[in-house]
Design a protein around this nucleic acid. Structure first.
Lengths: 230, 230
DNA sequence: GAACTGAGACTGTTGAACAATCTGGTTGCC
DNA sequence: GGCAACCAGATTGTTCAACAGTCTCAGTTC
C-alpha cells in the first residue's frame, strides 16, 4: 500500500520508461548524455534488468541510440532526422485536414481547446510551455484521422522532435507567432476551408522545418568543433 | 528500425525478437497463443531476462498483448484494429501516390520489381507467398515518401495485419486478382496518372478491408462460440 | 611520436532466488 | 446438490550477484 496505482496496472519497466522519457523530452537529459545502466538503476531504485527493458523501449521509440558494448545515449538528431520527421508531419497533418469533414465533433472541440491552451500559455508568457502546448494542438489535429496507431506514431515522432527543441536557444516571445498560425489553421479547419487550411499548414511546416534545421545544424557545428578542439 | 543492420552488431535480444516475430507473422504461432517465458527461453536457449526484453519489443510493435501477472499472448486482432490499420494504410499509401512525382527513380524501379515478384509467385501458384509479396509492393509504395520513420511504422502496421491473414482460410487462386490490381496501380503511378492511381488504390483498400473484416469477424465468432461451449 | 599493453570500467547475458498474483480444484458448509 | 471460501501449484514480475566480452585510456616501450 505504499504507492497507489491510480490508473491501470503498470509494471515497473513502463514506469521507469515514462520517467526517463519525460526527462529526455523535457531537456533534463540533453542529447548525447550517456545513460549508464548501473548508475541509473541505482538512482531510480530498480534493478539493472528492469532499467534495460526501459532503455530498449526508448530505443524502439527513437529517443536513444544503442551501440553494442558502447551503451545507450540520448539521441542527437541529425539534419536527415529532422527532414524525415517533417515528411511524416506533412503526411499525417495534411491527411488529417483532408479527413476533417468526417471527424466527430468532440475531436474538433478538443482541437480547439488545445489551441486555446497554447494561447493561454502565450498570454501568460510561459514560453517554456508554449512549444509543448503548440505540439499538443498538432497532435489533436492528427487525432481527427481516428486511428490510434497513427496517434501513437505521431506522439513518438513529436517526442523525437522535442530532442531538437531541447538544444534550441530559448526564443522567448518569438514563439508567439507560431501559436497565432495554429489558431489560423484551426479556424480554417473548423470553417471547412480545407484547401486554405492545407496551404497554411504547408507554409507553417516549411517555416518550422527551416527553423529546426538551422538549430540542429548550428548545434552540430558547435559540438563537432568542441570535439575537434579537444 | 530494429532489423536494419544485417551485417554485425546485433545483440541477442533483437535476434530473439526477430525469430519470434517471424513465427508470429508467419502464422506459426496463431493469435491467442500464450508465450510463456520460461518455456520459450529454454527453447530458444536464452535467459528469461533476454526473452523478456524481446517480448517487450513485440508488445511495443503491437504483435502481442501483455497483461500484468497474466503474461504475454499473440495478439488477436479486433474489428476496430482492422479499421484502424486500414485508416493508416489509406493515409500513407494515398500520400505516397501524391508524392510519387518527386520520388527518385530507383524507388519507382524497386516498386515495379515488387509487383513483378508478386506476379511471379502467382504464376508459380505459390499462394502462401502471394500475400506477403503483395504487401511488399505496398511497402515499396510507401517508400516513395522517403521517410525512414514512415517506412518503419508501415512495416509494423503490416506485420499486425498479417496476424489477421494467419487466421484467414487459405484462398488459393482467389488471391490472384489482388496482384492484378497491384499491377494496375503500379502502372498508373509510373504513368503519372495520380488521380486514377489514387482512385484504384482507394477501391482496392476498401475491398481488402472488407475481406479482412469478414475474416476477423468470422474468427471471433468461432472462438467465442468455442469458449462458450467449453 | 607511434604502437603495444594492461588495468579498470562498463556492457551483455546468465542463473537463481523470492514475492506477488493468477488458476483450478478441493474442502467445507448450507 | 450447489456455492463460497480456500488452498496449492504454476506463472509472472523483479531483484541480485556473478562472469565473460569489449571498450577506453593512460602508461610503457621502442
Amino acid at each position: 500500500m505504499s504507492t497507489q496505482n491510480s490508473a491501470a496496472a503498470a509494471g515497473r519497466p513502463v514506469l521507469v520508461t515514462d520517467v526517463l522519457r519525460e526527462r529526455i523530452v523535457e531537456g533534463d537529459l540533453p542529447p548525447g548524455t550517456p545513460l549508464r545502466d548501473v548508475a541509473l538503476s541505482a538512482e531510480l531504485g530498480v534493478s539493472r534488468n528492469t532499467l534495460r527493458e526501459a532503455l530498449r523501449t526508448l530505443h524502439d521509440e527513437g529517443l536513444v541510440t544503442q551501440q553494442l558494448h558502447k551503451g545507450t545515449a540520448v539521441k542527437t538528431l541529425s539534419a536527415e532526422d529532422v527532414t524525415d520527421i517533417y515528411i511524416a508531419r506533412r503526411t499525417l497533418e495534411l491527411s488529417a485536414i483532408d479527413a476533417s469533414p468526417l471527424a466527430p465533433e468532440p475531436l474538433l472541440d478538443a482541437m480547439e481547446a488545445k489551441v486555446a491552451a497554447a494561447e493561454l500559455a502565450v498570454s501568460a508568457e510561459a514560453w517554456d510551455k508554449v512549444g509543448t502546448a503548440s505540439l499538443r494542438f498538432h497532435q489533436s489535429l492528427v487525432a481527427l484521422l481516428c486511428s490510434a496507431r497513427l496517434d501513437g506514431f505521431f506522439r513518438v515522432t513529436i517526442a523525437q522532435l522535442r530532442l531538437a527543441f531541447a538544444v534550441m536557444a530559448d526564443q522567448g516571445a518569438f514563439q508567439a507567432p507560431w501559436v497565432a498560425r495554429d489558431r489560423e489553421i484551426c479556424d480554417l479547419v473548423r470553417g471547412g476551408r480545407r484547401a486554405d487550411a492545407a496551404a497554411a499548414l504547408r507554409l507553417y511546416l516549411d517555416d518550422s522545418e527551416r527553423t529546426v534545421l538551422d538549430a540542429v545544424r548550428a548545434n552540430s557545428r558547435t559540438t563537432t568543433a568542441a570535439k575537434g578542439k579537444r
